[in-house]
Structures are given as C-alpha cells and as structure tokens.
Design a protein around this nucleic acid. Structure first.
Length: 207
DNA sequence: CCCTGATTCGC
DNA sequence: GCGAATCAGG
C-alpha cells in the first residue's frame, strides 16, 4: 500500500480528529500504526493543535527549549466501524434524557438551569433487557461481574474492553464495565450473555 | 498486559 | 519516503 492522496487525506482527517495511530491504520488497512505515525511525522502534523507563534517578534529567545505538549485532542472511542452494535431490538429503551428545555419566558439572561449534560452515549447503548427476558443465571452472573467492573469512562474504552454501561448516565454513578471483552464482541462474557440471545430462547422465555 | 506516540535507521 | 524495531510512557 502506498500513500495516495486519498489515504493521506484520511490520515490527516482522522489524526486531526484525535484518532489514534492504530485506529487510523486499521481504517486505512494495509499499514501498521508505525507506518501511520511515521507518515504523520513526515507530514509534519505530529505536534499540537496549531501555533504559528509569529505574532511576537520578541527578540527574547523562547525560554522553552524543548517540551511540547500533547495535542490535547479529544481521544475518540475506537469505532466498531460499519455495523453499529445492536444485538437485539431493545425491549425497554433506557429513557436517558426526557427533560425538555424549561421555558423562562421572562428572563432574558440565561437561567442557571442545570443543563444536565448527556455525558455518555458515544456509542449506541446496548439494550437494557427486562429481567423477565433474561435467564436467572445470566442475571446473577451479570450482577456478580458488575461488582468487579473496571468502571471505565467512555474515553478509556477499547475494542477489548466491555462496553456495557452501568449506572445512570445522568449521574456520576455511571461507567462502563471495562472487563476484557469476548473476542469480536463488544462485551465481556457475562454481558454478552444478556446482550446476545438467540431468537428461539427469547421466544420461549416470553410469556 | 493492554495501549499510546516518538525516534531511529536500513531500505 | 517508508515503516519495523525500538524506545518511553500510561
């Protein structure tokens, strides 16, 4: 594979988006993350955000000899690419944020209404199955496992970590399972058990 | 151990 | 110019 304009463009875009070198390499295909990093450097878009730094003709030599900091770009979660994970039709969708904007109507100044940030939701949330559709064993397993959840933040998720959300997204008590995910699946063993159910067993369990 | 980017250097 | 190997770090 060679660095065609097309591929370079993708590289630039993804890199500026804060995508990791490995993610970019995967997207492009045919190259390793090393290749990507190498290219990034050769293109000179390695460092930071932007800093022409030409405004100050100060004769004083920059006190900073070296030391450049990381881009501080928002690291994005590795995309499962094409297919958004959605094992089953969600039995009971989690109502994340019903709360409509309250209408001040009289106050011109922005009211300090706790604009509750919808923190997570980077990826489609997995179904939150109702208890009566999951085997007791699986449920027990999940409860047990969730005690040991690594409590990762959205940013810390990788393709190898369980992306099962735990807790209420609207509160601080929210995190992702984070335990090692089953190869090729977005969830750990226990969560795969409740996320992926054969249609048959589903039908049987239903009243 | 998983991952990150940075650098080197033979090709 | 390229990128594997290596380094340094979280």
């Amino acid at each position: 594979m060679s660095w065609t304009d097309d591929r370079v463009e993708t590289l630039k875009r993804m890199w500026s988006e804060g995508q990791s070198a490995s993610a970019i390499a995967k997207e492009l295909g045919g190259v390793t993350r090393n290749a990507v990093i190498g290219k990034v450097h050769r293109l000179g878009l390695s460092n930071r955000t932007e800093e022409p730094e030409a405004a100050a003709p100060a004769p004083a030599p920059a006190p900073e000899p070296v030391a450049r900091e990381k881009p501080a770009a928002p690291r994005a979660v590795p995309q499962p690419a094409a297919a958004p994970l959605r094992p089953e039709p969600t039995p009971e969708p989690v109502a994340v944020q019903p709360e409509p904007e309250p209408e001040p109507s009289t106050q011109p100044a922005f009211v300090p209404v706790p604009r509750r940030p919808i923190v997570p939701a980077g990826q489609p949330l997995p179904p939150q199955p109702s208890a009566n559709e999951i085997s007791p064993e699986a449920l027990a397993s999940v409860r047990e496992v969730e005690k040991r959840a690594k409590k990762l933040t959205l940013m810390e998720l990788t393709e190898r970590t369980c992306k099962w959300p735990i807790g209420d997204p609207a509160t601080d008590k929210f995190w992702f399972c984070g335990l090692p995910s089953v190869a090729g699946k977005p969830y750990c063993e226990a969560h795969v058990g409740v996320a992926f159910q054969p249609m048959s067993s589903r039908r049987d369990r239903r009243r």
